[in-house]
Nucleic acid binder design. Structure first.
Lengths: 147, 147
DNA sequence: TAATGTTACTATCAATTTGAAAGTAAGTCA
DNA sequence: TGACTTACTTTCAAATTGATAGTAACATTA
């Protein structure tokens, strides 16, 4: 995709997808949310080639979703941890997972639980004000005003 | 990405991303939600090359998010409309947009409104049972039982 | 009837990206 | 001294993308 012009696109979906719109980046973020932080953990868990992983981690770091942190001085070793922006990406992963569960849910699937209560989490997207489920009512789009 | 083995992955996020994990597919779905249905509408609005658009529409159709519908017999013309699975993808687009608005929201952005009330929609992801916002509590993952 | 337009593509091809495998750098450990 | 660990880089064939041009089937206009 031609990222350059998409960054100026007035659509926030396009702006997000300009650099996060690929499967590896999202799977890295998923693993980061499940507690992975190190290069080799991501590499082994995803089965991704190291060159691609290097590039994806660099992009996610440059875009502010991950940050490098030194976890050992001797030998010098760095790991990748989620930033606030990275942590705020969790709802995206959850909604993707909810769709996958509903439409590609054949066979055994992992479930996501509340770490303290152990209850399974069932995400629903609602309007913050009205509480109405997204998708239950027709929507339209408002262009940015003025020029 | 090597889609083949990912389809058997027990993670619903991975299963969804196996064929929808690229920016063009998501932008096509976004446009479909905003009412576009025809090849040339997508092509012009996205500035995507026709060969890539053809392939993406074929995948989205094969995967059951869009379906072809004849809208003219003479000349024979087909358009692409969202299926139930495609319509259920809306929350994914909304959460991506919400992240983009928060972290890439410089300058003017389009907004999404309730088509009837005109009120701006502000999506939040909550747990269906408890109503607690996703991200406010720590999570853990449960592997599928048995074997 | 001929020329032009519309729509949904296919064909071509250079440039970029991926995927797989091997190699490397800076250390530690026995 | 030699093996091991971790986080990469290098290499290169194969696949995918992006840009552009062309085509097929019809309708419309002159």
């Amino acid at each position: 995709m031609n990222d350059k012009n998409i960054c100026d696109d007035p659509c926030p979906i396009a702006r997000c997808l300009a650099f996060l719109g690929d499967a590896w980046s999202l799977l890295i973020l998923r693993d980061a949310h499940f507690g992975l932080t190190r290069f080799d953990q991501f590499r082994k868990n995803l089965g991704i080639g190291p060159a691609i992983l290097t590039r994806r981690l660099a992009t996610l770091t440059a875009e502010g979703l991950l940050e490098k942190r030194l976890y050992s001085e001797r030998p010098p070793r760095e790991e990748y941890v989620l930033t606030a922006a990275g942590r705020d990406f969790l709802p995206v992963l959850f909604t993707i997972g909810a769709w996958g569960r509903k439409y590609r849910g054949e066979g055994r699937l992992v479930r996501i639980l509340d770490a303290e209560t152990g209850a399974e989490i069932r995400p629903v997207l609602v309007d913050e004000v009205t509480g109405i489920k997204i998708g239950d009512r027709p929507i339209c789009i408002a262009e940015p005003d003025g020029d």
